[in-house]
Design a protein around this nucleic acid. Sequence first.
DNA 1: AATAATATTGACACAGTGTCAATTTGTTTG
DNA 2: CAAACAAATTGACACTGTGTCAATATTATT
Lengths: 208, 208
Amino acid sequence: MKEPAQAKVDKRHLRTVRTREKLLVAARDVFLSQDFQTATISQIIKQAGVGYGTAYVHFEGKDELLIVLMEDVMDRFYKIAEQVFEPRSRADAKQQILEQATAFLRLADEERAMLRVVEQAIGVSYVVRTKWKQIRERFIGQISQDILYAQQQGLARTDLNPKLVARGWFFANEMYLFEVVRGETTAAIDEIARTLTEVYAHGLYRED
Amino acid sequence: MKEPAQAKVDKRHLRTVRTREKLLVAARDVFLSQDFQTATISQIIKQAGVGYGTAYVHFEGKDELLIVLMEDVMDRFYKIAEQVFEPRSRADAKQQILEQATAFLRLADEERAMLRVVEQAIGVSYVVRTKWKQIRERFIGQISQDILYAQQQGLARTDLNPKLVARGWFFANEMYLFEVVRGETTAAIDEIARTLTEVYAHGLYRED
DNA sequence: AATAATATTGACACAGTGTCAATTTGTTTG
DNA sequence: CAAACAAATTGACACTGTGTCAATATTATT
């Protein structure tokens, strides 16, 4: 009844894929139910219902397991960062930046459970830290381009290095992101986004 | 010949103090010669020339050992953050902010060896992370006050929450601090400070 | 059905932590 | 000054978690 021709070849692959999937689902459960440091491979394989060594067949360790899980979350952030940015005026630019910053922090709030784990892992694990740096560079690269565009359109100051400005802007956002994730923010997300945007946009897109 | 009266009582104290000191010196050596995660208590006690358990008598563990070492470094940063800030004009404010930011990043560069360890430890250790948050709040509190002063003097925009602005400003600086520490900066410290300050100062101290 | 290829398994060796009863060192007292 | 006391130091031990690998189970091929 099932696929006859390929079925034989696939059955093994399928098992592999299933095991991998089981491990990922279990890892997610375990990471979310406690945190990255205290989560152990033993807990994960137990939850996944597979043997101990199996985890090491599919992943290099806890770190790599998380990196795979991270990617799904980060994709949602990339979508925000990579929206088209072609403002017609300074007011327009500011409005768009505000929207992006707000969306960014709101998403952080939505994904806070997983990002909490990510933050812990960044600290503990070298590979995760490296991965996070890549992610960050992708954001900063995108912002740099946006700034460059604005400079070319005569909207933004041209006496500043776009890459340096982009880093600074992203850093402030990133730090607030983790504050939101930790639930440590006193202020509302919208106010944070507004404040950051006001300072940044007026500083960079000054009228002269 | 030595102090007759107090000497007896002190000798024991002295031994304790010496052991503690030996451990701190050794910890510093070990942390700097490798990093926080791979450093072990065994290495530290060996370097200090004391027994294994001794480390646990004086400190709760690796974390607390580092926290004590951190404090010395951070004191130097506090000195910068707590300089008087009483600008007479916007240009004056900007100049002072630039000087502070520059001094901050230069000090990061000077203390990079120890700060590298601190950064690693922030990731790994809960107590160190908590300590770092305290340190950060001290900086942010100071900056908030400076902003408030500028607002009261009519130098800065009053439509923004000083605490939120202060956080954002500090976050950008903090992140660059760690980039400097990691030696990952492409740009020169002075240019980073200048860029950050330009955007921040023009964004906050706008003429309206 | 026998053989080959691949996936899974858990026991094992290892590394580091934190504890605590025993030991060493220093202080006080009769 | 020696016995009794107090404080500091010690390292062996029990524990927790990691990563490896030879053995085993499952699937594919001949």
